[in-house]
Nucleic acid binder design. Sequence first.
DNA 1: AGAGGTCGCGCC
DNA 2: AGGGCGCGACCTCT
Length: 586
Amino acid sequence: MTEGLPARDDGEALVLVMEAGIGAPEHDDERAVVLVETGPDGAQRMRRVVTRAELAAEVGRRERTGAEEGRPPRWVWADTSRWAPDLIAAGVRVERCHDLRLCHRILRASVLSATSELARAPRGPWDESPGTPAVTQGVVPLDLGIDPDPHGGAWAGDAPGAAGDALSELRRQLAAVDGSAEPGRLRLLLAAESAGALIAAEMHHDGLPWDVEEHDRLLTEALGPRPSGGRRPARLEELAAQVRTVLDRPDLNPDSQPELLRALRAAGVPVTSTRTAEIRAAGHPVSAPLLAYKKLARLYSANGWHWAQAWVREGRFRPEYVPGRVVTGRWASSGGGALQLPAAVRAAVRAEPGHRLVVADAAQLEPRVLAAMSGDAAMAAAGRSADLYQGLVDAGVVATRTEAKYAMLGAIYGATTGAGGALLPRLRQAFPAAMDVVERAARAGERGEVVATWLGRTSPADEVTAALRHAARAEGADAEQVRLARRRAQDHGRFTRNFVVQGTAAEWALCWMAALRRRLRALPGEPRLVFFLHDEVLVHTPTGIASRVAEAVVEAATEAGRLLFGSSPVEFPLDVAVVESYDEAA
DNA sequence: AGAGGTCGCGCC
DNA sequence: AGGGCGCGACCTCT
């Protein structure tokens, strides 16, 4: 089922942007940038050299002429996080790009491009991990084969054998895609990954609107006024005092896990760790004040005043988003824990005057993705209702919505025991095709094999699992070796089982955002994507077009489903809310 | 003093 | 429970 996937666009112009890597860093504006325009076959059409200071104007010009002809170019560069921020700061937001480093990483590992020259070549500069500070801030260590004099004219971009040469790399990538058994899937994946890199750069630039006063209000309400010096807030101090009294340890520091654990055990509290669940289960008089302390201490240290001072500037929280850092294809973030923004502080995410936040999240995304990728008609039918979990209840698969949720998540995460594990036979009976997809992925992982997402992103090779398995099967293997191999196989099987679903959900989400971004660009008033959380987006928009933005978000979800799964009957409904602050969304 | 490891908990 | 993360606090080692 590939009818939605893009065919090669032979009319698309690719414009490489490369740094010549010359000039002293203190004269950054004068550093040379080389632009090379090619067709999708990699044949060179035009090249020019500009200074870094001239780049944004040059890119903006080419982008406009492309847009007028209805064919914006695709900008090709080593690393979006190195080029896009300056362009965005200069007011230039390109329509599309191709991030060589992110795409290289996908093609290097993908089962769909395994026989390509790119995949079989030894590791080189393009295998360096993307998004690391050394890569994004330093000069990319590429041998571009460029004459160091930007006005000298001589240029050796076609010099063979230069492993770091961006044009050669682009050609290798295009060849890997064209030579793949599933070029449409890879093409979509690379385009989506690259669009994600653009979005990440734009979201960092735009930032999440953050109301520092509201944040201070809710912190003060929970913790007491902001303390001076290194002291704890009043409410935390009170709770600490209660804990000390109950445990009869006047000098206890409740922030120290070993100290706290010793004190709890000395007081006869039956815990083996300081985990919240154990403390709650103990039902001891210390439980209530200690649990309250832990909750507030977390808020204070992770998202308190100090956090705001470090990460919020001029009313915006600007974390760094790092596409491609999570093996499954999900984004990671760095700086301020953007992807763990707790519910307790979301009231501080407030639209600016005259604006609204459009908050949208995909309902039960992972189960729906599983239904689509497996072509499981029964599961698709259960997902016809807006709430897939309720759909399972209505179909008579399980008795309650809670059971449905546990069972589905258990199937996707690899539960073996407990409520989730117990319900698996019911799911297997009701949705054999869907369960077959995850169980085959699990078995492959247990054997130490790789698995791939719908679009071809492939799990990292795991030699350890395979080696342990081999050792355990060898003549004379002892029980300990067998136990170790089995344990490792089970762990890796759970990982690969989850990989195919989480990774495909990440692909859907990338397509969703890319489709949304394109729609937002066509709207007036500059509505901006300002937050992304795996299956959820926030758009900051002028109030007057908020309803059009909400429509665009829904249309983009439908488009994402079509792009990935063609005519699959699986729907991807959203919960959409137009609100003034994030906490108002359900 | 600083690096690195572990725990625990926030998000999906 | 089971998958994927980032981060802060504490602790240990160097």
